[in-house]
Structures are given as C-alpha cells and as structure tokens.
Amino acid sequence: MREYKLVVLGSGGVGKSALTVQFVQGIFVEKYDPTIEDSYRKNVCEFISLQCELIRLLIVCLQEQFTAMRDLYMKNGQGFALVYSITAQSTFNDLQDLREQILRVKDTEDVPMILVGNKCDLEDERVVGKEQGQNFARQWSNCAFLESSAKSKINVNEIFYDLVRQINRKTPVEKKRAKKKSNCILL
C-alpha cells in the first residue's frame, strides 16, 4: 500500500474543506466554519492499480495568520491542489504567490500540482473565466487545471486522482517503502 500526502491550498472560503469532505465522505457540508486543522484519510481501492491506495489529505488555508505552518506543510506534501473560487477574483490572484512559495520550498519546478476553480455550479456569480484559469495553468508550465463543484459533485474525485497520477509518474512505485501513511489536515 502506498501513501500519498496531498495538500489542498487556497484562500479562505473557497471550499477546500468542502471538496475534501465531498471526496472522502461523499457529502456536501453546508457549514461555514473556517478550518483550523483537519485531516482525512481515504482508501482508494478502485484506483489505477488494483492495490489499495491510501490518500492523506492536508488542507491549508491561505490566511496569513497561519503562515508559520505553511512551509512545513509544503515541505511534507507530495501533491498540491491550489483552489480558488470562480466567484472571487482575489482568491484567484493570490495563487501565483502560493505557487512560487511551493516551488521555493520544494526547490524544483516539477511539483505535482493542479489548479482548481471551485464553485463552478455558481455559474451566475462567475467572475473568473474558465479561459483565465486555463491560461494561468499554461503559464505554470502546463499544470493540470479543473473546474469543480463540491456541491454538485463535479470533478471532485478527478482532482485527487490526477494528483496521485502525477505523483506516480514522478516517483514510480519502487520508492514506496519509505512512505506508508496518508493524512489530511483541514486548516
């Protein structure tokens, strides 16, 4: 069994927890509580190879008061989902800095990463166009891009699967012995 540490990053209120809970438990949380710290695990048996995969998710908020821990999360994370809300331009703009910080901490250009435009069910309130997201992803050396909705269960699993696939591609299976856990922390 292989463990993947995925980190979900983004501004406050973009739906990091919602995506994660939807992925792990298959429910949509209506609560509007900011996450301090939370971790989730999920076994993914049907996934790619036949062996069970355990995914550990870590959710980190962009709020500046939690910056102290951010480096640590970035260092330990293997794959990163950078989430913005398509209904708020500022959440989108902040991601550039975040990506740069990840690349700096990881000290490489090649980090498994996916750009996620969440809340795509709220088409009426959209302010960040799909094009913008795609362009952004292209600038980030062709990083993966998805628009998702935790509420309508659109592209939720795909985000995490894509990350796992990227990690597999980057570090093939023989390196697995070192890592044997997976977790997910909500901030």
Binding site: S11, G12, G13, Y32, E64, A88, S90, T91, N93, D94
Partner: peptide
C-alpha cells in the same frame, strides 16, 4: 459581507 475577515482580499488592493 459574507465571510468578512475570512475571505482574503486582493493582494494589491
């Protein structure tokens, strides 16, 4: 304003 103090502002603003 929904999520006041929670939702981050635009960095340049």
């Amino acid at each position: 304003e929904e999520g006041l103090f929670r939702i981050a502002a635009g960095a340049s603003k």
